[in-house]
Structures are given as C-alpha cells and as structure tokens.
C-alpha cells in the first residue's frame, strides 16, 4: 500500500469520522431513551397507544433506511407546512439534521423491539410486589422494571449500537460528508480503490470495537454474577 495515499486520505477520513461519531452519539443518546419509551408504550394498557407504537415499529423496521432518509430529507421538504414552521424546517432542512432524525427514528424502532421483549420477559411477581408496596408507577419503572430490563436488553442493544454506526453512512446520500462520503470522494479522486477501502474499513472497525468493548464492560458491570 502506498504511504502517500494513507497520508492523503487519513486527514479527510478523520474529519468524516467526527461527523459519523456525531450522528452515532445522537443516535444512541436520543434513540435509546426514545426506543425505551416506545418499548414501554407497546406493553402499556392503552390499546390505542399500543397500536400506534406497533405501527411505528412495523413501518420503520419493514422499510429500508435509505427510503426513510429520502422521505425525510426530500419528501417532507415538499410539505409547505413543514417549510414554514421554523423548528420543523431546522430539523429536516439541513442534511446533517435530517440524517440524525432518520437515524434516531430508525434505531428507535429497533430499540423498542429489543426493550419490548426485555420488558415482557420480566417476572410478573416482582412488578406486582412493587405495586403492592404502593410504589409510584415511575418508581416501579425506574427502580424495578428498567434495571432488570436493561440487563436483558444490553447484548442485543450492543449490536444495535454497531448498526447505528454503520447506518450513519447513509447520511452520505444526502450530501453529508461523513466517513463513507469522504471514502467515495477519495475513491473517485485517487483511483486507489482497494487502499481507500481498507483504510476506511479500519476506521469503522476501530469505532465498532470501541463501542462494543464499552458496552461489554457495561454489561459485565451490570451483571449480577460478579
């Protein structure tokens, strides 16, 4: 491999990596609580709420993320109400914001599915015991349901976190230059396609190893058998 190409490509990819990480951090930071909330809503007693959240999950899990990105970025920009509303327009008018919104909505659906199964697997007796003690519903959630569910869900959530990093590459289709966007540009500039691919892959693998190791450590810290 030519060292000159590495020296040329890496600075660009580092800039791209910042954008990728930005999208991924928002994806986890907003997508996780959002997904947990939707997952909880899918186990709720209100039928309308359950139906609504089921439909949301089915739609976002059943369609490719590229379509979701395009509907949000190109499709919603057509609606004049959204164009006139400054907050909504800020969310989808800019490529980066639209990409973050798409990632959050997409990962939210998958996270909801992970946490729904985790919530369903909780022993009923524990929750009944908490309710029998007169605990406030919020406390039942924060002190009983969530701590138990998160231990169930964490292994599946770590692969979802790795998927978020990979899915952020779709931002490059709506003009956001993150790692894949820069890689494409470098490939067509330098023609050293294999070299650029290997360097870019190294970036992604490094990010994913860091994310997965971090979550593995968290999993070990949270596990009961220490």
């Amino acid at each position: 491999m030519d060292l000159g190409i590495i020296a040329y490509a890496v600075p660009f990819l580092v800039i791209g990596a910042k954008t990728t990480l930005l999208i991924a951090v928002f994806g986890v930071g907003i997508g996780l609580p959002f997904g947990v909330a939707v997952g909880l809503a899918r186990c709720s007693r209100s039928r309308a709420l359950r139906r609504l959240c089921d439909a949301y999950c089915a739609i976002f899990r059943g369609t490719p993320m590229l379509v979701q990105v395009f509907v949000i970025y190109y499709g919603l920009a057509q609606v004049s109400f959204i164009r006139q509303n400054p907050v909504l327009w800020w969310m989808i008018g800019d490529g980066l914001n639209a990409a973050i919104l798409a990632v959050v909505l997409n990962t939210g659906a998958y996270t909801a599915e992970i946490f729904r199964t985790a919530f369903l697997s909780l022993p009923k007796g524990l929750i009944e015991a908490a309710e029998a003690c007169g605990m406030h519903p919020w406390h039942v959630f924060s002190r009983v349901k969530f701590p138990l569910a998160v231990r169930q869900a964490l292994p599946a959530y770590s692969s979802e976190a790795a998927i978020i990093v990979k899915e952020s590459s779709l931002a490059s289709t709506i003009t956001v230059l993150e790692i894949t966007g820069y890689a494409k540009r470098l490939m067509s500039e330098t023609f050293a396609i294999m070299d650029i691919f290997i360097i870019t892959a190294a970036f992604y693998l490094t990010i994913n190893v860091v994310v997965l190791t971090g979550l593995k450590l968290l999993e070990r810290r949270l596990s009961f058998a220490r």
Binding site: K166, S169, L170, T180, Y204, L205
Partner: peptide
C-alpha cells in the same frame, strides 16, 4: 465475515463498483 459485517453496506458497494 468480520470485515464485511463491520463496515457499512454502502462502502462494500462502492468498493465493488469502482473497483
């Protein structure tokens, strides 16, 4: 397997097309 599962599909597609 680790390489392909670790990088975005878009990148694999760019590699195969441009390559």
């Amino acid at each position: 397997s680790i390489l392909v599962r670790g990088v975005p599909g878009l990148l694999v597609i760019y590699l195969l097309f441009f390559g």
